[in-house]
Design a binder for these strands. Structure first.
Length: 257
DNA sequence: ATGGTGGCCTTGCCA
């Protein structure tokens, strides 16, 4: 099974690039973040023409997550089922695709350390762990994919000095990310490339960051052990960050044999 | 050097 995560930064702006990419790479499952579309504005029929079933959890101007699948989409859950209040933002959707419990997740950015939105980010990461604990078993095939807005280690950013005091690298965020892994998930990219530096998934549009290779590794495919041991291929498609109207994130792909 | 660019419900906010 070939499975991909891609923060498209507006599916409306990115649809031509996404369609083209699907035709070339032909994944079984694509997890999309930041559709920036209302629930009903999702281009279901366009993806259907390419052979994909799809589910979308959208809210309009901001956020919005989706899953596309060629291997079935069952038991869809939008948001968290942990008994808590509904998340005000459309940031996570779950579905079972080809026997794998898949989540497409868009973790809050945080804005600034200490900001109200930063507290929301930390609580959101804690809720993700609670949802996993309450609904799933780490012995099952579970894959959480998405934009975590956290760089787990200094080698996951182009210059740790440039991030002093910033979000994405703070200890509470890194601890919250680690807590999720501790439930029973592995970062399949890091498994494949234990010491790789300089291969990122996100580059700001500004200041020519992509061309200067100044990025961050903040998008992840996290998989339980039964899945991760079957992972033979992981790649970041930097080509998708080039050319006409790219997203600021590149797709991250993994193949489970 | 607090800039730069690109998305949106656009002249402000979010990333």
């Amino acid at each position: 099974m070939r499975i991909v995560t891609w923060n498209v930064n507006s599916l409306n702006a990115r649809l031509p690039r996404v369609r083209e990419w699907l035709e070339i790479m032909n994944p079984d499952v694509l997890c999309i973040q930041e559709t920036k579309l209302a629930e009903d504005a999702f281009p279901t029929s366009e993806f259907s023409e390419l052979g994909y079933e799809s589910v979308h959890h959208g809210q309009g101007q901001w956020n919005g997550v989706a899953i596309l699948s060629k291997v079935g989409i069952e038991d869809v859950v939008a948001g968290f089922s942990d008994g808590g209040d509904p998340d005000p933002d459309a940031r996570i959707i779950w579905a079972t695709c080809g026997g794998v419990r898949v989540a497409s997740a868009y973790i809050p950015n945080g804005r600034e350390v200490g900001h109200e939105h930063y507290a929301y980010k930390l609580s959101w990461l804690a809720r993700l762990k609670s949802h996993l604990e309450l609904n799933h078993d780490p012995k099952d095939s579970v894959a959480v994919l998405g934009d975590f807005n956290v760089a787990p280690e200094d080698k996951d950013v182009w210059d740790p000095k440039a991030f002093k005091g910033a979000t994405h690298v703070s200890k509470p965020e890194r601890d919250a990310f680690e807590e999720i892994l501790d439930w029973g998930l592995q970062d399949v990219f890091r498994n494949q490339y234990p010491s790789e530096e300089g291969l990122y998934t996100f580059w700001e549009y500004m200041a020519g960051r992509f061309h200067k290779r100044e990025g961050m590794r903040i998008d992840f495919i996290l998989a339980t052990k039964s899945l991760s041991t079957k992972c033979k291929l992981v790649l970041v498609d930097r080509n998708a960050r080039k050319g006409e109207k790219p997203s600021d994130h590149a797709p991250l792909l993994a193949e489970f044999v």
